[in-house]
Design a protein around this nucleic acid. Sequence first.
RNA 1: GGCGGCGUAGCCAAGCGGUAAGGCGACGGCCUGCAAAGCCGUGAAUCCGGGGUUCGAAUCCCCGCGCCGCCUCCA
Length: 489
Amino acid sequence: MEKTTLKIYNTLSKKIETFIPLNPPKVTMYVCGITAYDSPHLGHARSAVVFDVLYRFLQYLGYKVIYVRNITDIDDKIINRSNQEGIFWKDLVEKYIKEYEEALEALNVLKPTYEPRASEHISEIIDLIQKLIDKGLAYESDGDVYFEVQKFPSYGKLSGRKIDELITGVRIEVSEKKKNPLDFALWKSAKPGEPFWESPWGKGRPGWHIECSAMALKYLGETIDIHGGGLDLIFPHHENEIAQSEGANDKPFVRYFIHHGLITVNGEKMSKSLGNFVTMEYLLNKFHPEVIRAFLLSTNYRSPLDYSETNIKNMEKAIYHFYETLYWLKKVQPLREGLLSDKARKLERVWQEFEKKFLEALSDDLNTALALGQLFTLENEVYNFISRNPAITTEESVLLEKIEKSIKQTAGKILGIGISDPSDFWQKERDKKLKSVGKTVEEIEKLVKEREKARKEKNFALADQIRDNLQNLGIILKDTRTETFWYVE
RNA sequence: GGCGGCGUAGCCAAGCGGUAAGGCGACGGCCUGCAAAGCCGUGAAUCCGGGGUUCGAAUCCCCGCGCCGCCUCCA
């Protein structure tokens, strides 16, 4: 394989840079996962899928990736929520972690190397806080410990903020415990009834940002290659992580910060107050996981992605067509000896172009939208070739087999699209969609057969009657030489 | 107020200095018992507007206009 270099946008420099890991072929990657206080939504899925593709692509390029995706399982939001619902905080956390993991599994997101949880790293967190206190960068105050932002002059370098300006525009609640409003908590003392761990500063729990610094250090070392998350984490979360980690270790914390864009719903921000959260439960019930994946990859990862029923439906149609092609591809049987026709030669060229362009696209700041475009171009070419060739030759079928394999190696392995067995895909999709209209696949198959029979007997009235009835259920029939293919809209 | 992003056909979306990928949809023709599918063809006088740089700009610079995000918890 030709050596491909990855170019990727680095939030630190605000530029697209050539990716060079610290110790190749090893790559260390840390991604902020979830705080387990609510059900997973499309935004969580976007993060997981985007970094999953990056993870897969880095491996494809030959890197040995150590991938950490953390779970924050203790913080204020969790405590509030468990009080609200009257559930023990640990039970609450377990419930949402399970939902998250199930959603990611459905989406075929690969497991990271490690998935550490904050509550299981309290001693590492305490050690790190102590180190910051010892170095004079943090101070204890009435059972809390705060990071003193003024002591870390480069604070703000990631988000392009200056300490002075931050102080002027401060909207953080003023606390008498802090020396400066910008100082952020490393350790919070426990109020009665709250979960706590023993520490040198009394009973309490970690602040929000420190767990990431501690766990990144433990699993990946002082300097990590890639740190990722949503755009919304740039400030203050990642800014604070930098301050903590670099303050403690005196080494650059991260070489490449990678942030993805946020999801909007019908053009509006997805938020609690608007009540427009698109949950994974809803989506997975309604759409095939690969449709969701493709939808998430249909826009550059840094741009906002607008969710709407229409937008994802469009992608569903594209993926349906793609899977129809895979279905026919699998069924191809050579009907005669022979070499490649001119059309087949053209197909071969398109395919070779595809392999090149597909990888080029991903290498260029993970341009998944372009890569998908290339995939669909190839797919259409294949579809056309098969659909209008009544007798495919032996050589042509060999070519088609190669293309099928190639799609699995590229789109399948890296994007996670096209990995299902086509028959299986259709079985599941038909099943799922028919449930909502109260029909079974068997019933429909029977009607389709009846119509085929009626057509052979030239009983077109009956045939059309059946077709119209099916169409009213949203079932579309496609007659081919060999069989009638159908799907539910 | 500070920082950042975006504005490309009906919709979604690539392209980021050399003359507009792809998806969804639409239209005309062929095919078809009729459709669907497929095939062939049509579709952005032009990339929000106005200046400028350049042999050449959707792509770079400046000025507007319009959206949006972050600055507080958030993927």
